[in-house]
Every structure is written in C-alpha cells, then in structure tokens.
Design a binder for these strands. Sequence first.
DNA 1: TTTAATTGATGTTAAATTAGTATCAGTTAG
DNA 2: CTAACTGATACTAATTTAACATCAATTAAA
Lengths: 135, 135
Amino acid sequence: MKLLTKDTDYAIRALVVLAKDSNKYLSARIIAKEQKIPYQFLRTIMQKLIKNRLVESKEGASGGFKIKKDPKKIKITDIIHIFQGNITLTECLFRKKICQNRKTCPLRREIKRIEWGLEDEFNKLTINKLLKKTS
Amino acid sequence: MKLLTKDTDYAIRALVVLAKDSNKYLSARIIAKEQKIPYQFLRTIMQKLIKNRLVESKEGASGGFKIKKDPKKIKITDIIHIFQGNITLTECLFRKKICQNRKTCPLRREIKRIEWGLEDEFNKLTINKLLKKTS
DNA sequence: TTTAATTGATGTTAAATTAGTATCAGTTAG
DNA sequence: CTAACTGATACTAATTTAACATCAATTAAA
Ligand code: FES
Ligand code: FES
C-alpha cells in the first residue's frame, strides 16, 4: 500500500526547492538535476503546478519557475489532490441488502472519519514546514 | 487516491458474510452471488484467507468456507496487510543533500506519525464491528 | 457407484494506472 | 542569431490491479 505516487513526491520536492530560492527563476533542468527527477516527467509535473497556480514561470533563456503561492499555505493535501484526486477508501463496502441506508450507515461514518483524519494530517503538513525541517 | 483495493474490499465483505453465519459452511458461489463478487476472483481471495488462517474450508459437495478466527480479532489492518502489504507513504522524500540524516530526520517522523495514525484507525475497525453495524 | 457441487493449486489474460519519453512550436536573454 | 528555456500534446513502457480459466482431488447425496 503506497499512499503517495511519484508525481506527488516529485512535486513536493520541486516545490521545496523553489520555496528555498523564492526570489529567482529556476529551470526545470536545474531542479531535475538537483533532485534526480526525470527531466521530461518533471516538465509535465511543473505544468500542472502552473495550472494550479502554485508556481509561475518565465519563458525563454534564463527563464524557469518561481514559487507563487505562499509556502505556508501549500498543504500536502493540495498536491495530493492535484496528482491523485480525492482520498477515498472504497466506494461503498456493502450492497443494498446489507447496508440499505447509505445516509445513515454507521459504517460509512467510520470510513469517512478515517478518511477525514488522514486528510487532516496531510493538511497540517505544508511546504513551509518541510522546508524548515529540511534546511 | 484509493486506499482499499478490490481484493481487500471483497475479502472484508466475504468475512462479514461468513461471520454472520458462523456455524455453517458457505460456498464461494453463494458468497459471490450475495455480494456480487466475480466468482473466480473470490476463489483466489478465499485461498489467501485460508492461508492466513482467517477462515477454514471443507471440500466436496455441500462444502465451503467457515470463519475460523474470532471476528472480534480480525482487524481491517490484517486484511490490508494480506492484500496490499504495508502502509507506507513514500520511500523517502529527499535525497542526501537536503536530508542528510535519515535517522534523525524530523520530516520522516511526521510521515511515520501519519502512517502510524492511519494504521491505528484501521486497527480499531474489526469484522465484528462491521458485522454489528450492518446487521 | 455415479454424479454434481465443491475446494486446491496454478497459470493466464485483460484493464487500468503509474511512470517516463519524445517532439515541436513559441519565447527571450545575451 | 542562437542557445536555453517553457507550452502543449501525444506517445510508450512498466507495473499493478482485476479478473478468467483449467484441471485434479474431494465429498455428499441421488
Ligand atoms: S457501507 Fe455503503 S452505505 Fe454502508
Ligand atoms: S525525507 Fe528521507 S530521511 Fe528525511
């Protein structure tokens, strides 16, 4: 059971690198080299971060990426959502016969509670925290 | 992001069905029909449950499966472990340069804490609890 | 004693997701 | 000009997840 995929992982790393040097543009090539991320893979990841307005970019020579959103406000949850969608355990554990009423299903409550708790943990972890802990 | 795979899901359902009727043998065909689980898929799932001593079986006509381990003691964690392995977030978020010391890495602690918390939640959820909540 | 329903064991295939590559057009600093 | 960049998009490869198939051995019951 793996909770984070490579793209989430790489995105987190890239964001920490950018947050560390937030005043200048860093090229994908530099970030890829520093973090040993496959270059083209990182490119597509960066484009998603652009679309989600976490970073901004400058084209052309000596262009690159710069962090846009405040690292204090970038939660790991945000990144997971971009690359892996929602945190869900499983659609529904039982069929009608066993679990007639989805709305009042107590099991569903348990499941939701676990999901919510996990999301909450990831919410507490921001890029800024990672940055401070690793620098 | 999906935390439970189909086999974990189906195994949980099958175990609840068996726990509900713990005195007789239920065939894979019956369970598959009742829970709308693909028959052959369920067969291989049942074999893993047998190997892990959660259920016992009887061969031949009117044979089938019966729950073996006390449903109070079957944690969702056990089932996840059988079908999905350990709960791990990601190998390691940063390379040497950023995160020199794995043993003392504070980020690693955070990650482990989240993993442990999730595992803890799944530990609290047993087949017996599901059974009581859905019957 | 035959038969139909069952599990045991094992191998194969199909579908979906994850990971990574390739290409080309447009931009810009030097 | 040109080399170093991003934007956009399409593609391929690898891995994991989901499901299917086959056949031997067992057993209750007709
Ligand atoms: S498990 Fe689906 S509604 Fe209860
Ligand atoms: S993130 Fe790997 S040891 Fe810190």
